[in-house]
């Protein structure tokens, strides 16, 4: 009896904690959704100090106007297209390049490995702002010398973001690969796989959750990036991360439109993530150690 009571209290405490966690995670989302259905007048007229006029969770005058006019003053759909192209490109290249490099660091004790690992780790430490100015100067210079446009082009941005996501991707994937027992690929080699063959036949399937994580990281990183996008993109390549800020100008604050755009901009990452989350939760390491 005593034992069941104890277990019951534990359960109640657990669910209570889970509910608190969920509320604190979800409040801003609720506010975003609620704001996107409010009229501009309602948002501007609300006032926390005046009873009856406080900002409310349920829109007083429910409206879809923010969604209907989302592309009217800010060309968010164009920014959307740009972001999709740049993010998918970044994801693809960083997954491929990071998997190869991480495998090399994790499984080969080649001369120069320590130096290389340290340099991967150190590039991670340099703040992006450090590269921004020389990078900008370099873009201008390359254009002048070779006539190759880098600024405000898709591939210029993909190249930039891929390189930014690489150090962390390599580092994380190396961590994942290190948790896969070496005995597994040694076994594969005994069974007749080459070292490269072991990568494709054994390691990549086992490291799927890690690779998925790297892919998500690359995509999200490119979709999110603000600093370089604010300097290196122009009319042709403005990404959503920058575009979304254009709803608030010195002249007017279109909060409703901004919240509607926020929801639209979040959708691709959310859908993409939901599809790949299985890979995440699958728990690669548990599978490997059990098997």
């Amino acid at each position: 009896m005593n034992r069941t009571t104890k277990r019951l209290t534990e359960r109640i405490f657990l669910y209570f904690a889970v509910i608190i966690i969920l509320i604190s995670v979800l409040v801003p989302f609720a506010w975003m959704i609620s704001g996107s259905f409010k009229t501009r007048l309602e948002i501007q007229a609300s006032d926390s100090k005046i009873a009856g006029k406080e900002p409310s969770w349920i829109p007083r005058n429910f409206t879809l106007v923010n969604y209907k006019t989302v592309n009217k003053e800010v060309k968010i759909f164009d920014y959307f297209k740009n972001s999709i192209i740049i993010s998918l490109g970044t994801m693809f290249f960083s997954v491929v390049i990071a998997t190869l490099a991480a495998y090399a660091i994790s499984r080969f004790s080649f001369p120069g490995r320590t130096a290389y690992s340290i340099s991967v780790l150190s590039t991670q430490m340099f703040p992006g702002i450090l590269f921004l100015i020389p990078y900008f100067v370099m873009f201008i210079w390359i254009r002048k010398i070779i006539g190759l446009p880098m600024r405000d082009t898709y591939w210029g941005m993909i190249f930039t973001y891929t390189s930014f996501s690489l150090p962390f991707s390599i580092w994380m994937l190396r961590g994942y690969l290190n948790t896969i027992p070496r005995e597994i690929d040694e076994q594969a080699q005994i069974d007749g796989c080459s070292k490269a063959g072991a990568l494709f036949r054994v390691i990549i399937p086992l490291a799927r959750p890690g690779i998925a994580a790297v892919g998500i990281y690359g995509f999200v990183m490119a979709w999110n990036e603000v600093l370089f996008a604010s300097v290196l993109t122009g009319n042709e390549t403005t990404t959503v991360a920058i575009g979304i800020l254009r709803y608030i100008t010195a002249q007017e604050a279109r909060w409703g439109g901004m919240m509607a755009a926020c929801i639209l901009v979040s959708l691709p990452v959310l859908i993409f993530f939901t599809v790949l989350q299985k890979q995440f939760v699958q728990g690669l390491v548990a599978g490997a150690t059990k098997g």
Binding site: A98, A101, S119, F159, I170
Partner: peptide, 13 residues
């Protein structure tokens, strides 16, 4: 295996 990553790192970092 590390060459592609190395090239990106040299050019961008």
């Amino acid at each position: 295996l590390i060459i592609p990553a190395l090239i990106c790192m040299i050019l961008v970092h």
